[in-house]
């Protein structure tokens, strides 16, 4: 009985641990990007895909779990570090953070409709309307 409970707990824990974040683009977007190139786009350090087309990164709302995971795994920053980072740029006119939308569904719809947009969603919400660049 104890063993079973233990097993259930472990399964639950591992489920939590593998809640992945998928970075997605339009199926017609042929660029390959590694973690560092993706993080540069979302930090405003670059503005284009490797092939030279304009990239529009899309965030999710600050409170969403996808955003928290993406910030810590892909950008390697806590939410307050990220806020400090953007306040340096915003209040000096050197950059603006990506726009935010409310949910995985919103990101999916926008990415599926525009080859310039790059976003991230909980990988459980993936559909075949979009292409996965990488997962974290």
């Amino acid at each position: 009985m104890k063993l079973k409970l233990c097993f259930v707990t472990l399964t639950l824990m591992s489920h939590l641990a593998i809640a992945d974040i998928a970075v997605i683009v339009h199926p017609s977007n042929a660029n390959a990007m590694d973690a560092s190139a993706i993080s540069r786009l979302f930090l405003g350090k670059s503005k284009k895909f490797p092939d030279g087309t304009v990239a529009i990164p899309l965030n999710q709302a600050e409170a969403s779990s996808a955003t928290g995971l993406f910030n810590s795994k892909a950008l390697k920053k806590s939410s307050s570090q990220l806020k400090a980072y953007w306040s340096k740029l915003v209040f000096t006119g050197k950059g603006t953070p990506p726009r935010s939308v409310e949910s995985d569904i919103d990101v999916l719809d926008l990415v599926a409709s525009n080859p310039n947009i790059i976003g991230y969603i909980d990988s459980a919400a993936l559909t075949d309307k979009v292409k996965v660049l990488t997962t974290f």
């Binding site: 806020k83 400090a84 306040s87 340096k88 209040f91 000096t92 006119g93 050197k94």
Partner: peptide, 23 residues
Amino acid sequence: LRGGRLRLPFYKYSDYLDVGYAY
């Protein structure tokens, strides 16, 4: 290119001297 009233770039934190949250 920027033109107008701007902050002098003396120090690391000059640009956002007043934005306490940033340091």
